[in-house]
Amino acid sequence: MKRIGERRSSTTLVVTSLLAVLVLIWSVPIIGLLISSIRPKSAVQSTGWWKAFVNSSDLTLDNYRQVLGGSSYTFVDSAGNIVRASGDNLSQAFLNSLTVTIPSVIIPLLIASAAAFGFAWLDFPGRKTFFTIVVALLVVPLQIALIPILRDYQTLRLTGSYLGIWLAHTGFGLPLGIYLLHNYISTIPRDIFESAFLDGARPMVVFSRLVLPLAVPAIASLAIFQFLWVWNDLLVALVFLGGTDNVAVLTQKLASMVGSRGQDWHLLTSGAFITMIIPLIVFFSLQRYFVQGLMAGSVKG
């Protein structure tokens, strides 16, 4: 489409200034967060963050040191006093988030791409029925599975374990993964498979040598969506990981900080920024895949 506004400069001016206002409104909350996270406690508590633009002398990284630090943490504040404070151990939670997220992205993608290949290119009884059920499961919100699975986990002693939450994220991510990868894999030209099968290649070889490499763009988009979903998830972590400190992920820690440190804005803001940093890096470095992943993932149940 042609850029219509470019013919009249007055229209362009109106458009740009309207956009600028909207973008400003959209970014003010994040700017406020960022600035508050590097202001000392006293300043955050007593004056609005926008005043840091006037008096920007006393910015500090102490808030980050404190929220990342362990149970007891000592630092020297800007006035030279030694302050002892209890940290929030977000560095541990950060590690936990990575431990939860990496397999929770790779495992469902492996299983989903294998299944998608099976549904698209292998013949077996009940293929259509099973695939229909998989697609139908897209409508089931995961809330429904919480109680039954939690009971199974209690029997299997899986509550609070990484394996438990990986499998949960795998289960909840599979319908979308299979559906989308099937859409993609089934469009790969038939000739490619046929010549491989004629050469006597086993399905596993065809899958790992041909299908996986060809499906990389789809897998990458899906990986980003699943990554965001798992990294930002609170509900599944709350239910299946439990609240113990040594497994709690960033979203859980941040949610509990909101409860226990409701007015400590200098810590909450830096904590929130720590939870956002990885998704933001992914966002800015892989924007194309990110957009595709989100668009593709928009039907997740």
């Binding site: 909350p29 967060l33 609170l234 909101v258 909450l268 929130a272 939870t275 998704p279």
Partner: peptide, 18 residues
Amino acid sequence: IFMPMAISFVGAGVIWRF
């Protein structure tokens, strides 16, 4: 405008509580 999509509901919660 798209950037908030990368942020968790909890993170957005803190941003907006503030």
